[in-house]
Design a binder for these strands. Structure first.
Lengths: 213, 213
DNA sequence: CATGTCCCGATTGTATCCAATCCCGCGTAT
DNA sequence: ATACGCGGGATTGGATACAATCGGGACATG
């Protein structure tokens, strides 16, 4: 068994707490309280927070502490614009070198998203959805690119959950996934990129409504 | 006076040590030794290393420590490809909204690069060069985008110094900067992007020679 | 009442200490 | 000879203790 270090464990848990809204945007992260809740000392917590700072999930003010990042609408637009550029690149590189097995695997992941969609477990749907999209990105063999895309996804996770709470949106999402699979089977790069773009657009409009509220 | 925290101080210094090659690629960062050299305990050093891990400057193996990142040629190509996408975006957004004062300021920075070029101080040249390019990027008002571009620059800093050690390359660089200023004065987005691309290409070919050596 | 100042509790920042883990070399057995 | 197992030193991981800093409220002053 590979026993995770405390900082890795804590990193995961704090990510969860931010994504599911337990730690709310703007709120200070009190190290003593939180580390006690997680059953560790402040040292590994602080290291986890440094990672999250690097990802933009929290902001750090020396001698004042870490605060959960707040996303303005303009931040959101910027994040999605960068995603557009990078995801387009990822797909253009990935698709031509996908094997049939890759596509089958991605298709299976789309099925799992559909299964998860039938539950009300937003976290599970979100996780399955990520696995689907990143299985595509991973085929690019551009690990740094994928890593940057991942942190961009992370930075809007807390808001995207709202999108996935609506069954109508879930319908759309699954339908778009099906179309994407079809495009992949034909190795149709242009079509895939277009679908991915529409997918993002739906998401960004929904999320910006939530933020500006 | 704003007294920096130890972790911030240490972060800067370790960055320097990596950029100037004191800490060599692949080498383990021994926390006890290094923290002693820097006159602090291991705790702030570890936090600085976590930041650098997030930027890809070091890689972390649990229970084994931090190692200075090694860049393969394919890594290098990937970094420059991502830079191409993001810098093109930054310039397209930045240039249309530059004021005349912005352009004057950028022009001043180009002069400073030229001044620095007359010395043999590679670190100073490199720093001035960064200020020049990032003054352009900053005009995009897309802080996240600029931040990502900055970490991409950081990840090849140690290698780029070699490029700047050659006076012929410095000639080219300054000539290209002048052309860039001219393009900016005309708010010629396409031309600027093309120049920036050539600039990058010169750099990537020089650096990949160094790496594959 | 507005404003400035000082002090104190709360919180973060860092040093030190100890525990956990890994790597390496030695010895042993096959 | 090679593979395997097993200390032991070196190094990292984490807990605790203490120092530094900040923010806010009481109080004084105009």
């Amino acid at each position: 068994m590979s026993t995770l270090t405390a900082q890795e464990q804590v990193l995961r848990e704090v990510r969860q707490l931010i994504a599911n809204g337990t730690l709310k945007a703007g709120q200070q992260v009190k190290q003593d309280t939180l580390s006690a809740q997680l059953g560790v000392s402040r040292v590994p917590l602080r290291e986890a927070l440094k990672v999250l700072e690097g990802e933009g999930q929290v902001v750090y003010h020396p001698h004042r502490g870490y605060f959960v990042a707040e996303l303005s609408v303009s931040d959101l637009v910027e994040v999605y614009r960068i995603r557009a550029l990078l995801e387009e690149e990822a797909l253009s590189v990935a698709i031509p070198q996908m094997t049939d097995e890759d596509v089958d695997y991605i298709s299976d992941l789309a099925d799992e998203v559909r299964v998860a969609s039938s539950t009300a477990d937003v976290a599970a749907i979100s996780a399955a959805n990520r696995r689907f999209h990143f299985a595509m990105f991973d085929c690019s063999s551009m690990p740094r690119l994928v890593r940057i895309i991942r942190t961009l996804w992370d930075s809007t996770d807390a808001y995207r959950s709202v999108y996935m709470a609506s069954s109508i949106n879930l319908e759309h999402m699954n339908a778009e996934h099906d179309e994407m699979i079809a495009a992949l089977r034909q190795r149709d790069v242009a079509r895939s990129i277009q679908l991915q773009a529409e997918h993002r657009e739906n998401s960004v409009t929904a999320v910006s409504k939530v933020i500006s509220r």
